[in-house]
């Protein structure tokens, strides 16, 4: 490994899978460092990101979605939105991609030992927090934590990332999994059509009053209402949420209504980034550089940031 933080380390693509379709498809890419030394030096913790390099195209900051318990590879879930992410989507097994990092702070997972964990993701927002549940659910770590609840929603079933593993978890006794898809928008507005089979709607006006049929894990609703309906207890619990800013806003409001303190709620902030190492200037919120001081913040810290994000 070079001690130049701008120099990417070469990694080989060892797996590619399509995670979500639509106009902004998501692909999961699994890569392994080519040099043993790079592999040993790269010590990531949940919450960290890495910068992926496509030669001649540029670089993108991407969350490391695999947990540190995976020693032999790193996984990234990439939404195709522009130049670099399109190039990343064209990668095939055997191709070479550059990786630098790991960057950013981390979820303070060690402080959460002995607590119940609620993980709430929306859309591509599951990527940065997937590493947490896969870390906690790993047999070596599972005993250190209490009950684990996963809640996740996307526009359609096809847009749910990581569905293969989530559907497997759904069938197991541990963790508790709840999934949702958005209301369908027909020509006459919302709820024009019936909910998709197997994904019954809930009462959107009063989600909290909805009675969940035993065994039911799939719903048609938005993620904030899923939270309102499932009603996770704040008692000795940490909630982690990530998704589009508007989803985070309502999810957090609903967690507060359920009695969660701001310091019990964690999220990740994203700003446009280039260098990833606190030099290029663009990711700041006030005096905070999100690339090094973040991306993980608890909600108390989020409220202390200047209102410019």
């Amino acid at each position: 490994m070079s001690d130049n933080p701008y120099e990417p380390m070469p990694a080989r693509v060892i797996g590619v899978s399509m995670e979500a379709g639509g106009i902004r498809p998501v692909k999961k890419i699994q890569v392994a460092f080519i040099n043993e030394e790079d592999k040993n030096n790269f010590k990531n913790v949940p919450g960290n990101c890495a910068i992926l390099s496509m030669i001649g195209q540029g670089e993108s900051m991407i969350s490391i979605t695999s947990p540190p318990t995976e020693k032999d590879f790193l996984e990234f879930a990439i939404m195709k939105v522009g130049v670099v992410t399109t190039a990343l989507h064209e990668l095939e097994v055997g191709d070479i991609v550059g990786v630098r990092g790991p960057y950013g702070n981390a979820f303070p997972i060690d402080d959460w030992k002995g607590k119940d964990i609620v993980i709430i993701g929306a859309g591509i927002g599951m990527a940065p927090i997937r590493s947490i549940y896969n870390y906690i659910l790993h047999p070596d770590n599972r005993k250190d934590f209490g009950k684990v609840t996963l809640m996740y929603g996307a526009r359609t079933p096809n847009d749910l990332s990581f569905k293969k593993e989530l559907f497997e978890y759904e069938d197991q006794a541990d963790p508790d999994v709840f999934l949702c898809i958005d209301w369908k928008f027909g020509p006459n507005g919302m709820m024009d059509e019936d909910a998709q089979e197997g994904w019954p709607r809930i009462n959107m006006k009063d989600a909290g009053a909805t009675v969940i049929p035993p065994g039911q894990t799939r719903f048609t609703c938005f993620v904030p209402q899923l939270v309102e309906m499932i009603k996770p207890s704040p008692e000795n619990t940490i909630a982690i949420t990530c998704g589009p800013p508007i989803a985070i806003k309502f999810i957090t409001q609903n967690l507060s209504k359920l009695g969660f303190d701001d310091e019990q709620i964690f999220t990740t902030m994203e700003n446009r980034m280039k260098c990833g190492i606190g030099k290029c200037g663009r990711c700041n919120i006030g005096e905070v550089f999100v690339c090094v001081d973040g991306p993980v913040f608890n909600y108390k810290q989020v409220k202390e940031l200047l209102p410019e994000y």
Partner: peptide
Amino acid sequence: CFDIQDIGSR
């Protein structure tokens, strides 16, 4: 403040 850009082919 700076940007980082790539010039060249793949």
